[in-house]
């Protein structure tokens, strides 16, 4: 196997006495859609935040495209081709959809110390942004202020913003969160198209979506990887059943 696009080695992150990430190692191969699942509190978002640089690990290493990025700030990782969507929608709410995406394009088009020209009239920024919006089916909502978009549209916009940075690796933190069944189906279809273009790490609670999309699945419990394998193998893994499904079983049998 060639070198993985993303390699996480022995990552540790503690909050007080609790290890939210506990000697976690993980490989994501170029071109795959790698899902990360686990019960609530397994440390999925903590992991994503360390991958994108919002949070610093206590120890361990993160290598991206052969380069050690463990101590790089978030904006530098973005420049290297790492993009994320947020679990809780995190957009520029008083800007239009197009402005949100155009800023993401601008971030990857040299520095932004230009004080004079009108940024909204820079055609190549707007064109690229519109292309990303079209990609997620939002082109007709380009001029709408984010706070007036529906929740589902905002989730799609999150994706368009991430895509506009032309990432090598897309980290999606529960893109399906809060979506209705029609919207979820649309999102799954969209991800099915995107996976052909870009490597994706998907954190998701929706098991139908995960098993429909993933090439590989990593299961986290209490900050540790208990299994990392193909969907079929994960389905049959006894330890996963115990740790993941078993928890609920214990709860119901006690109650």
């Amino acid at each position: 196997m060639a070198d993985p696009l993303l390699r996480v080695e022995n990552l540790v992150r503690r909050f007080g006495g609790i290890a939210a990430t506990d000697h976690l190692s993980l490989d994501v191969a170029s071109g795959e859609l790698h899902a990360i699942i686990g019960p609530n509190g397994a440390g999925k978002t903590t992991l994503i935040s360390q991958l994108t640089g919002q949070l610093q690990p206590n120890s361990g290493a993160i290598r991206f495209a052969g380069r050690d990025i463990t101590r790089l700030p978030a904006w530098r990782r973005s420049a290297l081709g790492l993009a994320r969507s947020f679990q809780i929608t995190s957009l520029l709410s008083e800007f239009t959809a197009l402005d949100n995406v155009a800023l993401a394009v601008q971030a990857h088009d040299g520095h932004s110390f230009y004080f004079w020209g009108d940024a909204r009239r820079e055609k190549h920024l707007r064109d690229k942004a519109l292309a990303a919006l079209t990609r997620v089916g939002l082109e007709r909502r380009a001029g709408v202020v984010v706070s007036r978009l529906s929740h589902g549209e905002q989730r799609e916009l999150e994706l368009a913003v991430a895509l506009a940075t032309s990432p090598k690796l897309l980290l999606l933190d529960e893109p399906m969160a809060g979506l209705g069944s029609t919207e979820s189906a649309r999102m799954i279809k969209l991800l099915q198209e995107l996976r052909r273009e870009v490597t994706i790490v998907l954190v998701e609670h929706d098991m139908d979506a995960v098993f429909a999309l993933a090439d590989r699945i990593t299961v986290l419990v209490y900050g540790r990887v208990i299994a990392s394998d193909t969907p079929a193998a994960i389905r049959g893994n006894e330890e996963v059943k115990r740790a993941y499904l078993g928890d609920q079983h214990v709860v119901t049998s006690n109650g």
Binding site: T52, G53, Q54, P73, A74, W75, R76, S78, A79, A83, R84, F86, S90, L91, L92, S93, E94, F95, D99, A102, L103, A104, Q106, A107, H108, S112, F113, Y114, F115, W116, G117, D118, A119, R120, E122, V161, A164, T165
Partner: peptide, 28 residues
Amino acid sequence: RIVNSRFGMVVQGLRSNEARMQAIGFPA
């Protein structure tokens, strides 16, 4: 001129949501 320029867009974006701006690649 400044607020409508690339620079101004970044500054206003930072007012709106700093974590987002860093995630898309701006050193705040």
